[in-house]
Amino acid sequence: MHLLIIEDNADIIANLYSYLEPLGYKLDVARSGKAGVLAATTSAHDAIVLDLSLPAMDGIEVCRQLRQQYQLTTPILMLTARDTEQDKVTGFAVGADDYLVKPYSLAELDARLKALVRRARNEHV
């Protein structure tokens, strides 16, 4: 599975690499919102893991642009510390397919990503 991780925290990026790469994931990283939009619109990915607190453009605006301006249908999982009900509602309203709050289980993240990609490909278990 080919993922785009849009995240600016180096520790989180390293943690995702150390867990997901041995499982066979290919990972691309963008460290700002603007870089994330560029990466998402110029290269194909199976799913996008998107933080909300990003430099240059926050994750809400990234998601909004990818869905509205670029009509991107790639599954987006928001992975963020923003944990209020309104944060989650806003995330889904701008086009997120899933929302996972930090701290999170890497095994759960893996399972959610696999489920999102299965649904996007219309595959069954």
Rank of each mutant, 00 (worst) to 15 (best):
R112I: 07
Q69D: 13
N9D: 15
V62F: 10
R67M: 06
I76L: 12
Q71V: 12
C63D: 04
L23S: 01
S53A: 12
L27R: 03
V117D: 10
A120P: 02
G95E: 02
L50W: 03
L109R: 01
D110P: 03
G91M: 07
V101N: 06
D87K: 01
V117A: 12
N15D: 12
T42K: 11
L109G: 06
D83F: 00
I13D: 11
A44E: 12
V89Y: 11
Q71I: 00
L16Y: 09
L54F: 02
E61R: 14
Q68R: 14
R82L: 14
V125M: 09
A40F: 07
I6V: 15
V89R: 13
L116Y: 06
Q68D: 11
Y99G: 10
D97S: 08
R118S: 08
M57D: 08
A96F: 00
R121Q: 13
S43P: 00
E123S: 11
I60F: 15
D58R: 01
A111H: 10
M78W: 06
A115E: 03
V89C: 08
V117W: 05
T41N: 05
T74Y: 09
M1H: 02
V101Q: 13
Q68V: 13
G95S: 01
A107Y: 08
I60N: 09
D83Y: 00
T80E: 03
V29T: 11
I48F: 09
L116P: 04
D58C: 08
L20H: 05
Q69M: 11
D46E: 06
G36T: 00
K26F: 10
L79K: 10
I5Q: 01
I13E: 11
G36H: 06
A10G: 00
G95V: 02
E85F: 13
E108Q: 15
L20D: 03
S32F: 10
D11E: 09
A107T: 12
D98M: 01
Q65G: 02
L50V: 12
F92I: 11
S105H: 11
T41V: 10
I48T: 01
D11T: 05
G59F: 04
A93C: 07
Q69C: 01
D83H: 13
L50K: 07
I12V: 15
T80R: 03
Y19I: 00
K88H: 07
A111R: 05
Y99V: 06
Y99N: 06
S32L: 13
L116R: 02
T41M: 04
K114Q: 13
P55E: 08
A47D: 02
I76Q: 00
Y17Q: 14
E7R: 04
T90A: 14
D8P: 01
G91T: 08
P103V: 12
A47L: 06
S43M: 11
E7H: 09
V37P: 02
A14R: 14
Q71E: 14
A44T: 14
L72M: 14
K88I: 12
K88Q: 14
L77A: 09
D83R: 12
M57I: 02
D28F: 03
N122A: 13
Y25W: 13
P55S: 06
R112M: 07
L66P: 02
